[in-house]
Simulated assay, not measured.
Amino acid sequence: MHKVIYDTDPGVDDAMALLFQVRHPEIELLGITSVFGNATIEDTTRNALYLAGRFAPHVPVARGAAAPLQRTAPGPLPMIHGGNGVGDIELPDDAGTFGATLDPRPAHRFIIDTVRAHPGEVTLLAVGPMTNLALALAEDPGIARLVKRVIIMGGAFGIHGILGNVSPAAEANIFNDPHAADQVLAAPWPLTLVGLDVTQRTIMSAAYLASLRDEVGDDGQFVWDVSRVYHRFHLSSEGLDGIYVHDSSAVACLVRPDLYTLRSGPVRVLTEGIAIGQTIQKPLSMPVPAQAWDNRPAQSVCIAADYAAVLELYRATLVAGVRA
């Protein structure tokens, strides 16, 4: 079993990735920590509570950072994720906690306490800005040696010509808190970056989404409903009749790492200038000295994947969940 803390800024693709985790038999979800990003912290926390209450009411939610370490929080993205952050699906009028539990601790403290309660067992699956992880490291640097693994949906490294999605140089999660990202990538824990290089080549087509709707019961209907605004955005902005599989790719990398090709080497994040948020890896195969990289731990970057197998894994997981 993979014991997971899901650090997220729900988010349409975040919601789809949460469902993937809840239905996968090898994942034990220990907690959900919210962070700003796709919407304000108020909305991402509400969405995390709603999703937990709907799909995993036994899983606690902890509210996280409202803004980056050193920058201004980005504005919401209604044209991508809808006005409520989860594709404008209808949320119950009486919000409360939707039957989920709001943990009284801030997200970074929840991470510290949970990792220390399960040393060597917890995977941090982070699919938003890395502010909560950076705050946890700042308060308790020792957790880096106790975490089993960190998997991040973030970054872009120019593989297949893919460079960024919020600027010509940067991916959104890294761009939204580049200082936190650079600190997290410097920590001595085993870390894998699942970036745009693979997520933008993993595409759920309109036909694929419709097949989930028609074949996977309530879960399939939820995926269809929550992805309507997201699909329209992809169609209007890129002419793509489908959606990129960002956050669910990080889940796939956790449970089926054999589907991904990795490149190892230290990674830096630019924290100023016109390319702020850019992720640059120095591969271990590069012999040239580079002081800014050479004193940092090697991390893994996904550079290729079996994209069809990733899509089948998502589908099969939801199908198996219905049968169960």
Results as ranks from 00 to 15, higher is better:
Val216Pro: 02
Gly220Pro: 04
Leu185Gln: 03
Gly321Ser: 15
Leu191Gly: 00
Pro283Phe: 15
Gly83Glu: 05
Phe233Val: 05
Ile274Asn: 04
Gly195Met: 15
Ile243His: 11
Gly83Asp: 07
Ile174Trp: 00
Pro92Asn: 14
Thr279Ile: 09
Asp218His: 12
Ala126Leu: 10
Gly53Trp: 08
Pro266Cys: 08
Arg323His: 15
Arg149Asn: 05
Leu102Lys: 03
Ser285Met: 08
Leu193Cys: 12
Ala308Gly: 12
Met16Gln: 13
Met1Asn: 13
Gly82Pro: 03
Phe36Ala: 09
Asp247Arg: 12
Ser249Trp: 08
Ala95Gly: 06
Glu26Met: 13
Pro141Ser: 14
Asn165Thr: 11
Ile41Lys: 03
Ala48Tyr: 06
Asp247Glu: 13
Arg116Phe: 11
Asn47Glu: 15
Ile27Val: 15
Gly11Cys: 09
Lys148Phe: 13
His234Tyr: 14
Thr101Tyr: 15
Ala134Phe: 09
Ser249His: 08
Leu125Ser: 10
Gly158Gln: 07
Ala181Asn: 12
Gly277Gln: 03
Val255Trp: 02
Asp214Lys: 06
Leu77Glu: 02
Thr33Ile: 13
Ala316Lys: 10
Arg256Leu: 04
Val35Ile: 13
His246Ala: 12
Val245Glu: 09
Ala156Thr: 12
Arg268Trp: 02
Gly82Gln: 02
Leu185Cys: 11
Val12Thr: 11
Arg268Lys: 14
Gln221Trp: 07
His118Thr: 00
Ala210Val: 04
Glu42Asp: 14
Glu90Lys: 08
Val223Asp: 01
Pro60Phe: 00
Gly37Cys: 02
Asp218Gly: 10
Ser237Thr: 12
Ala324Leu: 14
Asn132Ile: 03
Arg323Thr: 13
Leu133Gln: 13
Ser167Leu: 07
Pro10Glu: 13
Glu312Tyr: 04
Pro168Ser: 06
Val251Gly: 05
Ala210Pro: 01
Ile276Ser: 02
